[in-house]
Amino acid sequence: MPVETETDFSQAILNEARQEAEGIVDLARREAERILEEARKELEQAYRTESPTAAAQMAKTRFKQLVAAAKLDARKQHLLTQERLIADVWQNVSDQLLLAREDEAYPKLLQRLTHEGIDALDGEQFELIVAQEDRHFITQDFLQALSEQTGTTLALADQSEPDITGVIVQRADKRVRCDNSLQGILLRQEDTLRLEIAKRLFEADGVT
């Protein structure tokens, strides 16, 4: 999943959420069609066994019940599936983020994330914390180029951070840090993304 900015990152997640939401809506639609078909058979039976007046009254009552039940079921469906949808999307994206290092553009992404992390902090000396799998990317040339660009002194931290892609920039005195890992970016966007996923899920079939 190519990521250029946090906006692109958020949009990629929303696109996956939209696809899964459409699947959920399609499933709910098929269930609604099944209920309506059963109701149609029930009303046909009423016309055969009841008087026209009684059958018509039954049809009106049944119609109101179906509408009310459909609205209630739709809301219930969203409440039950919303968190599962978000959890599924979250897991899928988390898995993809760990695969980012396999992309040939990953070293450039590391440079950009590091630069942004340095810009977010005050200070002149910083350490870069990355996953063990990424330590080979942080070469002397990598550090020298960024040092010249930012006017700071950089070093690769002794410790590694498991299960991340991207970088955590830490001031040399270890008092402040900027988590600019892809996982950190995801967490910073969590509230916004949850709202957007829920919004798109509800909009998908017109439930308000």
Rank of each mutant, 00 (worst) to 15 (best):
Q19P: 04
D73C: 05
D95I: 06
L193F: 07
L187H: 13
A131E: 10
I185Q: 06
A28Q: 08
N180M: 11
A56W: 07
Q91K: 12
E16Q: 09
Q125H: 00
D122S: 14
H115N: 02
F142I: 01
A68V: 06
E190N: 04
V67T: 08
Q132H: 02
E6T: 10
M1N: 10
R188Y: 02
V89D: 08
P107N: 12
A39L: 13
A157I: 01
L97N: 09
L193Q: 01
T61M: 01
K71G: 06
L110E: 03
I138N: 00
A157K: 06
N180F: 12
L121V: 13
L128R: 03
P52V: 07
R84V: 02
L110Q: 12
S51H: 02
Q45R: 13
R135C: 09
I185T: 02
L36R: 15
F126Y: 07
E102N: 14
L195V: 01
D8W: 14
E6L: 05
Q183A: 02
Q140C: 02
R177Q: 15
E16G: 05
S160M: 06
Y106K: 07
L14V: 08
G123Y: 04
G151R: 00
D179M: 11
I197K: 03
L146H: 00
R30V: 05
Q170R: 14
R112C: 05
K60D: 13
I13P: 10
D119M: 03
M58K: 15
A120D: 12
L14D: 03
K64C: 05
V89R: 05
I168V: 12
R62V: 01
K60N: 08
Q96R: 13
T139M: 04
Q77C: 01
A155P: 01
L128Y: 03
K76W: 07
D103C: 06
Q159K: 15
A198M: 08
H136T: 13
A21C: 08
A70W: 12
A100W: 10
A155W: 02
S181K: 11
L79F: 07
L186K: 12
L79W: 05
V89Y: 02
D134K: 09
T165F: 05
G117E: 09
E38Q: 15
E196M: 07
P162V: 13
D122I: 08
S51V: 08
A69F: 03
T153C: 03
G206P: 10
G123H: 04
I129S: 06
N15T: 09
D173I: 02
L85N: 03
Q170S: 12
T208H: 11
T139F: 04
R48H: 12
E42P: 09
E190Y: 02
R175F: 11
D163Q: 15
K108N: 02
E116S: 10
M58F: 14
D8L: 09
L121A: 10
R40V: 04
Q132S: 04
I118E: 07
E4R: 11
E22N: 15
E104K: 14
T7D: 05
V169R: 06
R135I: 05
L201T: 05
I185F: 07
G166P: 13
D8C: 08
E203G: 10
S10E: 12
A69T: 04
L14H: 11
E83Q: 14
I185A: 08
K174T: 14
L36A: 13
L187E: 01
S10K: 10
R48S: 12
